[in-house]
């Protein structure tokens, strides 16, 4: 599995895109994760308005209660090696916590949006809550973690998450606090959206989805995880398009805001150099170079989509990115 070509979406058959667009939960179980990622990137060329994305949400939302994890539990116990489990947990646990963090930290961004943006964000909040519940069930019913509350289960998977996870996600919490004090401030909104939608959802999430879902599909295992996480990826495509549209509009209305995009990326890339533990990707079929290239191409695509160029110092930082971000 190599990296995607940079800054250009591979031509996709309209039929496949139609399938991704309209599939219900049973249908999405059969869709290739690479096609869902192409679907995300196709949307970046149009950047639909918030009400169109809201309509898409009404059509695409799925019911987490429809997932049955019993086959996943058998696969986990019988068909997955210890090394694969460790790699899988190192990556998936970042998602378990990431979904929870983006759920609780989205609210300040809603406060200063237009009415249409507020409507869309209510749908995104519901998505993120459902993603949090999805991971909670996966960890309880498949991995076997115990806990009465969502936080109990999160505490149980924290051991698999790198300490440096709290870099990008602590930044999100604090940028959210700054936004709460002045929800309409354009610079604070751009900073927040760059961290949340461009970096966490657009770079980290999509890369991790490609790695873990590609692994499940190739091995033919964890069907409920595959189904729910593939549907999650499609949800993320709306979130990323929504955020990038806001960034695109903001930097075109006021080009000085490009500096905020750059400053946030600079801080995120700087934190990325502090690797406190290594994530082993090989059991899932990836090597470090492949993951690094995947992150870099995802980042360049998203930055390109909002009409911003990376400054030379940022380009140099991207070239040296560590592939540990998936775990945090």
């Amino acid at each position: 599995m190599g990296a995607l070509p940079e800054n250009e979406a591979k031509p996709v058959a309209a039929e496949i895109m139609h399938t991704v667009d309209t599939a219900d939960l049973k249908g999405i179980a059969k869709v290739d994760i690479d096609d869902v990622i192409d679907y995300v990137h196709q949307g970046l060329e149009r950047l639909p308005d918030p009400m169109s994305l809201y309509s898409l949400y009404l059509k695409q939302r799925w019911n987490v209660d429809d997932l049955d994890f019993s086959q996943d539990r058998r696969d986990w116990n019988e068909r997955i090696s210890e090394a694969e489990k460790q790699s899988f947990l190192a990556i998936a646990s970042g998602f378990h916590h990431g979904e929870r963090q983006v759920e609780v930290d989205l609210v300040p961004f809603m406060l200063g949006g237009t009415d249409e943006e507020k409507v869309f964000i209510t749908s995104q909040l519901e998505d993120e809550a459902r993603h949090t519940v999805f991971f909670d069930r996966f960890y309880k019913q498949v991995v076997g973690l115990e806990g009465e509350t969502i936080m109990d289960v999160l505490d149980g998977s924290w051991q698999h998450v790198s300490e440096t996870f709290s870099g990008a996600f602590g930044l999100l919490a604090y940028l959210g606090d700054a936004l709460k004090r002045d929800p309409e401030d354009p610079s604070l909104r751009v900073r927040f959206a760059t961290n949340y939608m461009l970096w966490i959802e657009g770079v980290l999430a999509l890369s991790v989805q490609k790695i873990t879902l590609g692994y499940c599909r190739k091995r033919g295992i964890l069907p409920a995880y595959y189904t729910g996480f593939n549907a999650t990826t499609r949800d993320e495509s709306r979130h990323v398009q929504f955020g990038l549209k806001i960034l695109h509009t903001a930097v075109h209305e006021d080009p000085r805001l490009v500096k905020d995009v750059h400053d946030v990326l600079r801080t995120l890339l700087r934190m990325n150099g502090a690797v406190s533990r290594t994530v082993t990707y090989e059991p899932l079929g990836w090597d470090r170079e492949g993951v690094r290239a995947l992150f870099a191409s995802q980042l360049k695509r998203k930055v390109h989509a909002i009409g911003v160029e990376l400054s030379p110092d940022l380009q140099a930082m991207v070239a040296k990115m560590e592939p540990e971000m998936a775990g945090g």
Binding site: T164, G167, G170, L171, Y174, A178, R191, D263, T267, M271
Partner: peptide, 16 residues
């Protein structure tokens, strides 16, 4: 803990 004063990005440039 919350950052009641200071530039958030400057703080996170030194976070660890």
């Amino acid at each position: 803990l919350r950052l009641e004063k200071g530039d958030v990005l400057e703080f996170f440039n030194r976070i660890f």
